[in-house]
Design a protein around this nucleic acid. Structure first.
Length: 438
RNA sequence: GCCCAGGUAGUAUAGUCCGGUCUAGUAUAUGCGGCUGUCGCCCGCAGGACCCGGGUCCGAAUCCCGGCCUGGGCGCCA
């Protein structure tokens, strides 16, 4: 097929911006054919762009021959440009349609698409991910990512306002940041290297100069996880703050979450309606529950967790979904990472916390150890060799301030904000144990 | 790594328990034809599928074994 070139055409507006008030105006629309309804003497083309759809109406006997023949050649997903006149009408739900004066066919598409883009026959997530580029052309599938965009923008705005500096730390590292074997090895000019699992050590070091920092970026975990809330590559929103403790950053966190929910509720009403989901703005402060209290609540339900053990997911589920957002504090020291500060009054407990939403761990954080000797001791208790952390440990010789921080799993937060039950739905191109493409 | 469940047209499903008019049904999508106000348009026609290999049996989508692939739960964690 002979394709048209864009030439000097410039979009005058998105489809969604056209209202009956634009009656009689000439518009240039760029987008895609979503649907064609041909009734014989009249043909309706639904043109879609990022912001929505609009009907192009073609009364076959009243349009120029060129427009008629172009419109006959159209198929679903063809990329098109339409120049035409807005007409107010009571024949469409939106109250407007566009009568075309000129149509350009900018690209074509397969006759049989791998997905039903009208959503009449929804495909499974596996099939959708295999054709992700097309899948995202459906409004309800793109909606989650528009919400994610606004959520992240809100988080950034809030942190900037609180004086945080956005930083970038390495993704390629020489040794494990938190120990364990859950790293992806990479070859680095003949040396063995790894993909970073977290910016933890770097952001801590930065508190002694930049004081309040945050980073948004992908991190990598080579865990053989197989759940609806794990990815091998996920986006982390990390902060670290000098001269702060766990309670300080918990207060910051609950404000960030509240502000994000408020922003999403205000700016994404269309997307939330598309997803048929409601975001509620949580009240502050969030409930704080200690590890011991969680254990005793579970005991009342007949679930006995020996003290010191981590709380298994089924137990969290048993606690009920009416809990919403809540903090769990005062974890056993040995259950948390080596850099989490033990309580000075009761060293078997630590100043680490998790922010839960129902049974999902959304955020984890805490006061960090600022004392080098204690940090080395904790490393050894965790079976880590302090020698492999020498570049990190040396920072503690130069005036490491007391500090605290946390990390939000962006995709998990997006699940909470969109009601999606599978994390792969809120990752554009998810990576998990079995999926490496597209 | 452990434990379940499942693989049927482009997509989504029925059928599998208890083998036989299953020549594998339906919806949607696709192609062709018809229709001047549709908006999940409508009507007609057409093509299109039992994951792979082996076994049992007169006969296998259905039962058995092996393989491959996928989903869910656990653990781990964001």
């Amino acid at each position: 097929m002979q394709l048209d070139s864009l030439d000097n055409w410039v979009r005058t507006c998105y489809s969604a911006n056209i209202t009956p008030l634009n009656d009689g105006e000439e518009v240039t629309l760029l987008g895609w054919v979503q649907e064609i309804r041909d009734l014989g003497g009249i043909r309706f083309i639904i043109l879609q762009d990022r912001e929505g759809t609009i009907q192009i109406t073609i009364p076959k006997k009243k349009v120029p021959a060129e427009v008629l023949s172009k419109s006959e050649a159209l198929q679903k997903r063809f990329s098109v440009g339409v120049k035409g006149t807005v007409k107010k009408t009571n024949m469409t739900p939106r109250g407007v349609e566009v009568l075309p004066k000129e149509i350009k066919i900018l690209s074509t598409a397969s006759e049989q698409l791998p997905l039903d883009i009208t959503g009449k026959t929804p495909a499974n997530i596996e099939v959708r991910l295999d054709a992700r580029a097309l899948d995202l052309c459906q409004e309800q599938n793109a909606a989650a990512f528009k919400i994610q965009h606004h959520a992240l923008a809100a988080i950034r705005d809030f942190l900037f306002d609180k004086g945080f500096l956005e930083v970038h730390t390495p993704r390629i590292i020489a040794s494990a940041t938190e120990g364990g074997a859950e790293l992806f090895p990479v070859e680095y000019f003949g040396q063995k290297a790894f993909l970073a699992q977290s910016p933890q050590l770097y952001k801590e070091q930065l508190t002694m100069s930049l004081e309040k920092v945050f980073e948004v970026g992908p991190f990598f975990r080579a865990e053989l996880s197989r759940t609806r809330r794990h990815l091998s590559e996920f986006v982390s929103v990390d902060i670290e703050e000098a001269f702060a403790n766990a309670e300080d950053v918990m207060q910051l966190l609950e404000q960030v979450i509240q502000y994000t929910c408020k922003t999403v509720k205000e700016k994404c009403s269309k997307e939330l309606a598309t997803l048929n989901y409601k975001v509620t703005v949580p009240e502050l402060p969030f409930k704080r529950v200690t590890y011991d209290e969680v254990l005793s609540d579970l005991k009342k339900q007949g679930i006995n967790i020996p003290w010191g053990e981590d709380v298994p997911t089924p137990a969290f589920r048993a606690l009920g979904k009416e809990r919403g957002y809540y903090f769990i504090t005062d974890w056993p020291t040995h259950a948390k990472a080596f850099y989490i500060k033990p309580r000075s009054d009761r060293p078997e407990l630590c100043e680490g916390f998790d922010l839960m939403w129902r049974w999902i761990e959304l955020v984890s954080g805490g006061t960090r150890i600022a004392d080098k000797a204690l940090l080395m001791e904790r490393m050894k208790e965790k079976g880590l060799n302090p020698d492999s952390f020498k570049y990190h440990l040396q920072a503690f010789d130069y005036g490491m301030p007391p500090h605290a921080g946390w990390a939000i799993g962006l995709e998990r937060l997006t699940m909470v904000l969109t009601g999606k039950k599978t994390i792969r739905e809120v990752s554009l191109y998810p990576r998990d144990r079995v999926r490496l493409t597209p």
